[in-house]
Write a protein that binds this DNA or RNA. Structure first.
Lengths: 374, 374
DNA sequence: CTGTTAGCGCCTTCAT
DNA sequence: ATGAAGGCGCTAACAG
């Protein structure tokens, strides 16, 4: 029925072992023999049986990339960048084994169970590496479960890379680990590498709100992300910090509304903020997509941007520079971070000192923010 | 080292076969026994070995979703929707086998080689189903190669679903296949199902240009996608049709510029169009993202939208309704189509008659288009 | 309902 | 540089 390695061997008049060797290319094989085998492979249209191969070799060439929401370019950009460093340019003659790794992206949809499920799948498949992107869920039980899975993955030989996610969820986390050292880097961890690229969400958010404060705003609404996310918390903390420093700390809670990271949430939350504080002069959104929804709500209520109300976002997604007015936001180098995560996962770049690197966030001031009226 | 099924069996005092049966749940097992086994699984923290399992069973629970550009929400939305029908709600106690399928998305980046590589990977992994999203590349050799791979996948038992891609690339295609029947549905194809959901790109594009024509536009520029894509061709043909019917067919070529499906391309192409025809009154873009770039270029050249120049896009991505002015575009029900593709891939929905269903495209007239000046 | 027996297709020491 | 042989961990008939 299906053609196996043995069939190829028979046709090429060599042993199965030889075929395996030319396919994997990790072993010296006479050029002539190789040619013969390759021809047989083509003739028979042979395709390596992945499961069998992985079973025997106890490894696979899969690299998993976990994302919270595949429909969100925030994740798409990171995933695409990471993948560009992994899938590489496949050697000619696809179908062969080739040393190349293959990136697969897994969409958790923000569900803790799914995150765990995919991690298990990847563990099952003996994935060569796993990249987790974006904010983590802050439930202690879940964090522990994820940490445990990652630990197992890591000491099963898989590289684990966090991109845009704090390392706290790692086994032992920063708090318990050796100073500046992540567990995977500990002696005994073998070749496993655990690295984390964190975004400066807090700092970025702080500077963004400071910008608004400097412009003279005082009644600033905040549309936060889902409550249980690290990203949400860090950005909110940055906002809080800035407000606190301006003596406005007490007003924050009243003018903060949580919701998912989508356009609709920005719309609804902004309406709610307007209800709570009709004199609002600025809205800071959890991300650019949410900011778009906020703009729509404001316009619908007859507020012009930025004359009546300033609006700011976060992430600097591609469309943000093209909105009218262009959106003031905090730029995260998503592509660069994703690419670096990909390289780390491939072991093609040394892990940063201590296993953790902070990715800077840059304030992008554009037309959607201005001094408040009067 | 790693704990195996045999270890679990030993601890639970049953045979390996029983453990396997409990894990897979496809077989009657006494409740008491099951409990014992499950406890052993938990105690030992056992994780099924995927490769071994797939090898023995000759199938896996993977469903591959191929996308051309994961950073583009067009694909993200479809992939997410498809996945929502596949990943389902995992049974409690992750780590178990569970009948659930797992969706993995593979980003081809629009590269033919990568598309083939991923298809091979999926074939290797004995994927349960494969969903190909978005336009196909029109190179004959490549189409043939893809068709061959899909045929193999299909008769290896995998379901193949095309979402937003014409079935021409299928083995035998529409032209050669039995009337209204796709090869996978032919007798002998076993359980394999091949289905295609095509978007009405041509019709949508035609209506869009007709809308502009009705408004009184005559000098309409077209920013097309990459030349070798079916999506590009179909949309352009629709535009051409409308222009031709208005007696403007000859002008089309001169006012068409090709480029990738991104913001930058829209920007550059629009500048070029303005060079070729300074009196341009409308720009139709290959998709919404491209339209955004077009808007930026027009504004930079001092043209206001829609007073000086009308702009239209395609796809109706979430941000399109929130731009200023809101973008006139053609709505494709990406989420619905993706979800349906997911259901087809799971065999949870009957294939449409003939294996092909056309997904309608709806014209969304918004603020970015208006009658030309004067 | 449960145990026994064979492989699934490949990789990998060992020899040669 | 190549062949021979064993086993990776699991599932799928069979018996009982």
């Amino acid at each position: 029925m299906t053609v196996t390695l043995a069939d190829v061997a028979a046709r090429a008049q060599v042993s199965p072992a030889t075929v395996s060797r030319v396919l994997n290319g990790n072993y010296p094989v006479a050029a002539a023999t190789r040619e013969r085998v390759l021809r047989a492979v083509d003739d028979l249209d042979y395709v390596l049986n992945g499961p069998a191969s992985s079973l025997a070799a106890a490894t696979s060439d899969l690299v998993g990339i976990l994302v919270n929401d595949i429909a969100d370019p925030f994740f798409g950009i990171m995933a695409g960048a990471a993948q560009s460093q992994i899938g590489g340019s496949e050697a000619p003659g696809a179908g062969r084994a080739g040393g190349e790794k293959l990136a697969i992206v897994c969409n958790t949809g923000g569900s803790p169970e799914r995150e765990l499920t995919y991690l298990t799948l990847l563990q099952r498949q003996r994935a060569a590496a796993v990249i987790l992107t974006g904010g983590a869920i802050e439930d202690p039980d879940h964090s522990a479960a994820v940490a445990a899975k990652l630990a197992k993955l890591a000491d099963g030989g898989a590289r684990v890379v966090l991109c845009g996610r704090p390392p706290l969820a790692l086994p032992g986390g920063l708090a318990e680990g050796l100073p500046g050292t992540l567990p995977g880097a500990l002696p005994g961890g073998g070749d496993a590498v655990v690295a984390a690229l964190t975004f400066d969400n807090r700092g970025g958010a702080r500077r963004l709100t400071e910008h608004l404060l400097e412009l003279g705003h005082r009644r600033i609404g905040y549309v936060a992300g889902p409550v249980e996310r690290t990203t949400t918390r860090h950005r909110l903390e940055g906002h809080q910090e800035a407000m606190g420093a301006a003596g406005l700390g007490d007003a924050v809670e009243h003018l903060t509304v949580h919701g998912p990271y989508d356009r609709r949430s920005g719309y609804d939350a902004t309406l709610e903020l307007l209800r709570r504080e009709p004199e609002l002069t600025a809205v800071v959104a959890a991300n650019d997509t949410v900011a778009l929804g906020a703009c729509a709500a404001l316009r619908e209520r007859g507020r012009s941007i930025p004359d009546d109300v300033s609006v700011a976002g976060f992430d600097d997604l591609p469309f943000s520079a093209d909105t009218m007015p262009a959106l003031t936001t905090v730029r995260l180098p998503l592509y660069e971070a994703g690419a670096r995560a990909g390289r780390l996962a491939m072991g093609r770049e040394a892990a940063p000192p201590g296993g953790i690197a902070s990715v800077p966030a840059e304030l992008m001031v554009r037309g959607s923010t201005a001094a408040p009226r009067g």
